[in-house]
Write a protein that binds this DNA or RNA. Structure first.
Length: 549
DNA sequence: TTGCAGTCAATATC
DNA sequence: GATATTGACTGCAA
């Protein structure tokens, strides 16, 4: 990297990290200021070339939304600090009470004076006024690891304590919709697993938390909204009746009748429970189904292929998140206080549980695993993510461990190795991790055989279980699955190896889930751990080091 | 091209 | 009415 640095513009977000770190480091050495001091805008574009001119010092007026644009940069001021200081200052920046968030600056945030504005538009995120013009991205990029779990927890507390809604908070402070806020607060990802963009809301939350007047401001906003609403209501009522549609006023005003609009809108697809069940089962068989499989599933379920594709994407991603949460929670529970970045450290064995729907599956998936390195090195991985935990988490179901495998995490401390796995542990645990998506999927395997499919109903037959024959990844998942849904599927499998039904049926699955702690589950977990462990070994033959347990 | 992260926004649920 | 869930979409990276 030092000898062949890529140009900043060609670096991925992750790829930029080292340069940012180097820059910080250099700044420290040089005593140059990294952080802007109020009012200064730092430029995001770094010269990856080692010449490093305190890139950070080049102020770029980049707006929050357009970080990359390096546009104009002005020399930035200085604020001497050592690398550690810079980091520290950053931390402080984000952690210490910050100046009023909102506001005005770019004109963005709703002006208090203009109630209307506030209520009608979601207002852009906040311009972190206090911190000068440091764009949020810059803050994010330079921000130290934040305890996402702790932050969301505090935010939730503050919001509930003060009776502030997610919508208001999201639109005003984060620039996100209510649904996103809800999701974020309920399932925060660990800091190191977030992309720069994904970290933004957390930085904003942190800044907001640090703002001594945060609640007050939000309350004001609330009041203004209310006022504006009342105002509008009044005017519309008194003015006449013309158009009532308060919320959609704009659209209506644009001429066309409301109707068209509605018609243009695609009705939201709502999958029936049976369909979901079927998809879940299909997922258990193949988290990464081939196009063909998807096609079949779609046909069987009478859904659009895009819907099936989306469902798989969403499911994988959500399961992953569930795992994060479990890890975090497990971690925090395990460790007392935990506030410290549980997210990062969470780790340890998370016992279980899977997310509902998730069927735990993913646990392995690992995003976690996957990125471990993100934080930098194995150690980091271990530390931050609580590596092991990841693996551990929700073992029972973990079916696929997709990508992560790369980094398979070691078994939870308690469970060492393979042994645990008794018979069940299907040795075959294959390979590798999740392969690239499809690879395996197509495989031979057991893809759900459409034939069998009858989704919901047919279940009976359910059966099937597709034996593991699948591709690597699948294999793994097969294994897991089997472990996860043990008996039930087993027999079935025997009967009908590849049938869609396998995807459905198996009522037991649900039952199994309930009892999270039963011995069976534990056993499964142990098996999984052993499998993971083996995978790990295989994968890391090169560097056996690490993991200390 | 595929998968993922992050979101939105419609619905469902509380 | 507020919050949670979830199908779909966008943009990015590999």
């Amino acid at each position: 990297m030092l000898s062949r640095p890529k140009p900043w513009s060609k670096l991925t977000q992750k790829g930029r990290e080292p340069f940012i770190r180097m820059q910080l480091w250099l700044n420290g050495e040089l005593g140059q200021g990294v952080l802007p001091v109020q009012g200064q805008q730092q430029g995001p574009v770094l010269h990856s070339m080692t010449s490093l001119q305190d890139p950070l010092q080049q102020g770029c007026v980049s707006s929050e939304s357009t970080p990359k644009t390096s546009a104009s940069c002005s020399p930035a001021p200085e604020s001497p600090m050592s690398s550690s200081e810079s980091v520290k200052s950053l931390t402080e920046l984000v952690q210490q009470p910050c100046p009023p968030i909102e506001t005005s600056k770019d004109g963005k945030p709703p002006e208090p004076s203009d109630p209307a504005a506030s209520d009608s538009q979601p207002t852009t995120p906040l311009p972190l006024s206090g911190h000068s013009a440091l764009s949020i991205q810059e803050l994010v990029a330079m921000s130290p690891e934040l305890d996402t779990y702790g932050i969301t927890k505090r935010v939730k507390e503050v919001l509930t304590d003060n009776n502030l809604g997610q919508r208001l908070f999201g639109e005003t402070i984060l620039g996100l919709t209510q649904g996103s806020v809800s999701d974020l607060l309920a399932r925060p990802k660990p800091w190191h697993k977030l992309s720069l963009k994904g970290r933004e809301p957390f930085v904003r939350m942190q800044l907001w938390l640090n703002d001594p007047n945060n609640v007050e401001k939000l309350m004001d906003m609330k009041r203004m909204e209310k006022k504006a609403y009342m105002k509008r209501r009044h005017s519309s009522v008194s003015d006449s009746q013309p158009c009532e549609p308060p919320s959609t006023g704009i659209d209506y005003s644009q001429g066309a009748s409301p109707q068209p609009q509605h018609q243009l809108k695609k009705p939201r697809v709502v999958l029936a429970p049976e369909e979901k069940e079927a998809l879940k089962r299909a997922y258990q068989q193949k988290p990464y189904p081939s196009p063909k499989t998807i096609e079949e599933l779609a046909t069987q379920l009478n859904l659009k292929t895009s819907t099936v594709i989306n469902w798989f994407h969403n499911y994988r991603s959500r399961i992953r998140r569930e795992l994060f949460i479990e890890e975090i929670q497990a971690g925090s529970q395990g460790q007392a206080g935990a506030s410290d970045s549980p997210s990062a450290r969470s780790g340890r064995a998370a016992p279980s549980s899977e997310g509902d729907s998730c069927d735990g599956v993913e646990a392995a998936e690992g995003p976690g695993a996957a990125d471990a390195e993100e934080s930098g090195g194995p150690a980091a991985a271990a530390k931050s993510q609580g590596g092991p935990a990841e693996a551990a988490a929700a073992p029972e179901e973990r079916e696929e461990a997709p990508r992560p495998a790369e980094k398979a995490e070691p078994p939870p401390s308690g469970t060492p190795a393979p042994d645990a796995a008794t018979d069940e542990s299907r040795p075959r645990a294959p390979p590798p991790p999740p392969p690239p998506p499809e690879g395996p999927a197509d495989g031979p395997g057991p893809v759900p055989n459409p034939a069998a499919a009858a989704p919901a109903a047919g279940e009976d037959a359910a059966t099937s279980a597709a034996p593991p024959g699948e591709g690597p990844c699948r294999a793994r998942d097969g294994a897991d699955r089997s472990s996860a849904l043990p008996s039930t599927s087993a027999p079935a499998a025997a009967r009908r190896p590849s049938s869609l039904q396998s995807l459905f049926g198996l009522p037991e699955a649900a039952g199994a889930r309930d009892s999270r702690d039963n011995p069976l589950r534990k056993k499964k977990a142990a098996n999984l751990n052993s499998i993971i462990h083996r995978l790990e070994k295989a994968a890391s033959r090169e560097e056996p080091i690490e993991w200390e347990f």
